[in-house]
């Protein structure tokens, strides 16, 4: 024998390897069964998809994405290897979606109702689903619009309020005032007619007052404490006013900040129309507050019943 041991080993191993490879291919590479079917799906875009991404039908894995490429039309052709033997109707739709919040993209084939089935090399329509994050982004924009609208309406309301107070209400208030004056005159004439009785009444009142005086003198401490309580009440009112003022200042600051802000919120609030709305609202508010500050009586005089006496 002039075949060396090395050669014998080499022959044995090589033949075994060849036989193994052929056998393996023979057993797994079959025309009828398990032949991988390649199907193309065309998408507008395929963000997040890659070779190896899985393909599902009703939650069952049926294959995987082989590769993706841009086509002539500028859309994305996704080539899928379908291992399943189950026939797929040819009007099925491939939906590019993400099954979970953090998982990558996958393709879900939604079987159609056609009698005819997809064969190797067929193309199906692709739908690109937005992911949850993209959905949230869109919702955020809508929300911004809503807020903008709400503020505009509010603004209008305040403007109307201001107008009411400036014109119509003033007239109404004036009328009320005149009515009151007429009533006072009438009371005056009545008083003149009934002078005697009034004199008696005053006498009685005087008596009553002196009695009240003694009463008040006797109850001095209680009246004092009543006065103190009233005073503190007025102080509290003062504090509330200061706080309101402070709140107004803060609001101004916040608005200023938001005005300069960035990101989604910034975009949201930098919307010029909204800014203008807010601005005019602020101006209106300011003028309203200034009006009250400068001439409180203008708004409050007619309501003050104490001045009647």
């Amino acid at each position: 024998m002039n075949i060396t041991n090395e050669a014998k080993v080499g022959i044995t191993v090589l033949l075994a390897a060849i036989v193994a490879v052929i056998g393996f291919r023979f057993m797994s590479d079959i025309p009828v069964f398990r032949q991988p079917m390649i199907i193309t799906a065309e998408f507008d875009r395929a963000d997040g998809l890659s070779g190896g991404s899985l393909v599902y039908i009703r939650g069952v894995r049926v294959g995987s994405v082989r590769n993706l490429a841009l086509n002539q039309a500028g859309r994305v052709d996704v080539y899928m290897r379908i291992d399943s033997e189950i026939p797929i109707p040819d009007n099925s739709v491939a939906r590019l979606t993400s099954l979970g919040l953090v998982e990558g993209k996958s393709i879900v084939i939604e079987p159609g109702n056609s009698e005819r089935h997809l064969i190797n090399g067929d193309t199906v329509a692709g739908i690109y689903d937005e992911s949850v994050m993209e959905f949230l982004g869109q919702k955020g924009e809508e929300l911004g619009d809503d807020v903008s609208n709400a503020i505009a309406e509010l603004n209008q309301f305040f403007m109307q309020l201001n107008e009411t107070l400036n014109d119509d209400a003033r007239v109404t208030l004036d009328q009320t005032l005149q009515n009151t004056m007429q009533a006072t005159e009438r009371i005056s004439s009545i008083l003149t007619g009934k002078q005697q009785e009034i004199g008696q009444a005053i006498e009685a009142g005087s008596r009553m007052l002196s009695q009240m005086d003694t009463l008040v003198t006797d109850n001095r401490p209680r009246v004092d404490s009543l006065m103190t309580a009233l005073e503190s009440g007025i102080r509290d009112l003062e504090t509330v006013r200061t706080e309101l003022e402070q709140a107004s200042v803060n609001l101004n600051e916040i608005l200023a900040k938001i005005n300069q802000g960035e990101g989604t919120l910034g975009r949201l609030l930098n919307d010029p129309s909204m800014y203008e709305n807010l601005d005019s609202l602020t101006v209106e508010l300011n003028s309203l507050i200034r009006g009250i500050n400068e001439n409180p009586g203008r708004y409050l005089r007619h309501m003050s019943i104490i001045e009647l006496f």
């Binding site: 060396t4 041991n5 090395e6 014998k8 080993v9 022959i11 044995t12 191993v13």
Partner: peptide, 13 residues
């Protein structure tokens, strides 16, 4: 080693 590879492998085929 080669002797044994032959005896165990080749010769057993």
């Amino acid at each position: 080693l080669f002797q044994e590879l032959v005896k165990i492998g080749y010769d057993s085929v």
